[in-house]
Design a protein around this nucleic acid. Structure first.
Lengths: 202, 202, 202, 202
DNA sequence: GATGAATGAGAATTCATTCAT
DNA sequence: CATGAATGAATTCTCATTCAT
């Protein structure tokens, strides 16, 4: 009977740690994150973090994993009722805009070379297309397009990776170069998608 | 009379600082860079840096600027004697392979959000195509291709930026995900360029 | 009725704590011992220790006491069927070799200045010979040797302490200087015992 | 001109660090030594230590080296004008009494297993007798005694090590067991030396 | 121009211990 | 009996920076 509120509290503190860490990263980048800052902001002592996490590294991994989940939850998935090309256009427009909104978090996540983070962000490896839901979906859409004669024949795995890398590149630079105007951003997104879709033509 | 050799010496020390910093970054990444390490390796005392640079930040900017110059110098420029599509293929293959070789330095450079660094690495802004020699060249090649009927009509500035972003995205992820096999890397590069070139067709 | 199994359990936990602490000390030295490590290895929470012991210090004293008992149990006692000189030779050879095997534990024990530990490890005080079974035995052997004319007359208590200190010194330094070869170790042990036995001659 | 006082000051601070460290060790043992404590007592900031020493370990080694030097300087060396047995008696009486006076320091030194410290405290290894001046002297005295017919023939190196270990053992236990009365201490020292000298007889 | 002393802030971790539950 | 949350003090060490000399 007494356990539930306790558990809730426990979970709450853990979540609070993650939340504050997330906020710091989002606002000031991953280098600004320190155990001390988190706990000071919480009004707790520094040691408490080691109650809930083994390491700073592990804590960071959790934070980024949560961030990844959030981003993925926000991302409009490929709409399978649309024609493949329209689906791709819609999904990636959403993807870039969404990433742009969660700028710092996305950057911390997608630029991280930590093995733990790469565990769910890496996409280029041979066979990664099967491991990543997003890429799998994209591959499916490509296959559909090919069967419908909308797209020319191609290796769908490699192509999915190429498309993903291209869109990532645009988003990455938009995050790095902060002062691109919204109008220019929209134009770039459109042009990028256009280029890709034309590249897929039979 | 005595000033010139003095100035030369001054310049030499400055260059040495930058060179060592560059080496550290190249070998061990930007986080391994510390004033102490630089000066210790030089056999000087730490304070010396503040005679030549205001800040660590400013020093870093200088280092990266030099790095940028070096990378640009290494990059195979667009070969204007080749047909435009071949020129693009050759240039970007070289670009990615080259960036992959200077991994840490390239990453420090291209992922930096420092205004000073962005001063010569930003590419997405409206009008940036005229400011960046590399993009200018690419734009020229695109124009040539369009005139030759190889490429369909398009906004060459926007297209150059899109192409550049796409290739950057691939390189960026190759740098982040360290364990992509050379074979897979080659395939990805090829597929990416193929996709782009097909996207340019009339 | 329910108390007895409870008490048994209580005792069992206490023993387990001591056993694990002993293992840690034996393997990694006394500095590697921490409450957390003990309880983690037990699958208990850290607080549990304070149900069974007042302090880390007190816990440590208990551990060392047990260790002392074990070492004493292992030590080949003086064989009263042998001639006194042979008995001494055999016992101390065994003593040094045995201490060398349980290196870390022996060191933690014999170098400890904690009053609690000294309660059963001190040997030099006036009258300690009667309080320490090991010294008592040695004294008996000396007396036997004297009566048999094997050893010259002497104060047996003082002599037992001197002999013990001499052998302790050799063992102590063997533990401190880790890289003495087994051959050299054997030679030193022999020489030490030889020196002592000759010193006892009439 | 300005350099000398500077150098003097530099040296002074270094010495002060060592002196305070020495005092802490002497008073409260080697485990009580911390960088913070040293610098706080000096009225300096903690970082200063790393100006003068690379490590805590290195600092400790310096402290102990100094301590070793001091102890050695205090130790009455073997008096070569005395007959060998008298020389040994005098030297070791002085050695034990002296070690007893600098109790904690001696303990920190002689019980340390740090390689750096063992570099000048180890004595048991094969050939160490040639490397340690003190042992060399003792060996010389033994040889003299043998030639004079005072001592029986023996391996002088091994014997020197054995004697040294025996006396070390007595001193070590005197340091560990703090409450041995001066009278008992004197008796023990005498008995120990007696035992050894008798052991050396032909 | 160059040094070396010195700082102060901050980094991650570890630990023994307490206490309400 | 046992837990788990929490603390607070301690640990070594690193770093950018300043400044008198």
């Amino acid at each position: 009977m007494a356990r539930k509120p306790q558990q809730q509290h426990t979970e709450a503190v853990r979540k609070q740690i993650i939340a504050i860490a997330q906020r710091i990263i989002t606002k000031e980048g991953v280098n600004a994150l320190s155990i001390r800052r988190i706990t000071t902001e919480m009004g707790y002592s520094a040691g408490i973090v080691y109650h809930y996490f083994q390491n700073k590294e592990q804590l960071l991994a959790c934070v980024l994993e949560q961030g990844y989940a959030r981003i993925m939850a926000c991302a409009r998935p490929l709409d399978e009722t649309l024609p493949p090309d329209e689906a791709i256009r819609a999904a990636f427009t959403g993807y870039v805009e969404n990433g742009h909104k969660n700028s710092a978090e996305y950057r911390a996540l997608m630029f991280s070379t930590s093995p733990q983070v790469l565990g769910f962000t890496s996409v280029l490896g041979d066979g990664k297309c099967e491991a990543r839901p997003a890429l799998q979906l994209l591959m499916g859409t490509l296959n559909a397009g090919i069967q419908q004669g909308l797209f020319g024949p191609c290796d769908p795995a490699l192509t999915a990776q190429a498309i993903w890398a291209a869109m990532f590149g645009l988003l990455a630079r938009l995050l790095i170069e902060k002062d691109v105007s919204p109008a220019q951003r929209a134009k770039l997104i459109n042009r990028q998608i256009e280029l890709i879709l034309k590249g897929l033509r039979p």
